[in-house]
Design a protein around this nucleic acid. Structure first.
Lengths: 151, 151
DNA sequence: TATTGTTATACTCTATAACTATA
DNA sequence: TATAGTTATAGAGTATAACAATA
């Protein structure tokens, strides 16, 4: 049967797979984020890196990797791209010569400022379907999965 | 300050961004899935496609795109890969000659059977941190984001 | 020994654009 | 006009492996 299934409104047994719902939700967020940030030409990860570098001056790449749960090579690729666009600069650390400190340039701070405005739109779209209590509950549940920010 | 921030246990203001938590959770799930399926050499999306093709015989690529919220070209790439590995075959539809029906091969059914076993492990790892009620709550909240399977 | 940064490499997902065939 | 499949192309994220410098 089902050659006429043009609009599968029932997910079937796969609908019980929690990982499946996480992937779908992530995809939806990813697409809306991309639309919202098409003018700024910034991705989710790029904004996260700009944000954390601004929040933690002289943060190193390895720290970003831990905070955003990315491999060193992945951080490298993102930082390279941001540096290539002149949004941040690498500098030498004075206390540990293995490490490189990261600092936003003026252009980087400007991009982040505009990104924060766009994030308001994006988060409103996302959070608009939940009450404040539900948002906190969802964040708490998701935190149990990724395990970050648990002091 | 903060050049000594080697283990940022506090996410700072970015911790209030719901989209940020969704990305982190998705990343954690993605990594564990990859480990669990490294022997089978199947990705999340590939398993989802095998699963849906098995659930809906003669489903077409466009249907997969709607169910999994992927672009036509993205579906194409995944189906090509699965077909190249001999896990499914394309066939002509008899009622709409624009469409191609998709069907699992014996190898595809075998791969899916093994995938279902691996998914049990993966989902146990994922769901183990929640009560049954919390799992249902989380799925309901995530469904409000991706909007699929809502009849 | 462990960590940091780095380079090279490769794979997957994702999407856009343009084309053909069919409805 | 709209939909389905297709092809070509490109960008981004992700990871592994190996190496040098430093702790």
């Amino acid at each position: 049967m089902n050659e006429t299934l043009h609009r599968p409104d029932d997910l079937g047994a796969i609908g019980d797979i929690l990982g499946f719902h996480i992937r779908l939700a992530h995809g939806a967020v990813y697409r809306h984020f991309s639309e919202t940030f098409s003018d700024l030409d910034l991705t989710q990860k790029q904004v996260s890196v700009l944000w954390l570098v601004d929040d933690h001056p002289d943060i190193a790449q390895a720290d970003l990797g831990r905070a955003l749960q990315m491999d060193r090579a992945t951080v490298m690729a993102i930082v390279n791209r941001l540096q290539g666009r002149g949004l941040l600069v690498r500098g030498a650390s004075r206390i540990d010569r293995r490490r490189q400190t990261l600092t936003l340039t003026d252009a980087g701070k400007d991009a982040l400022a505009r990104a924060r405005v766009a994030i308001l739109d994006h988060e409103s779209w996302l959070k608009g379907r939940f009450s404040a209590v539900e948002v906190q509950m969802l964040i708490a549940l998701l935190s149990r999965i990724h395990g970050a920010g648990v002091a």
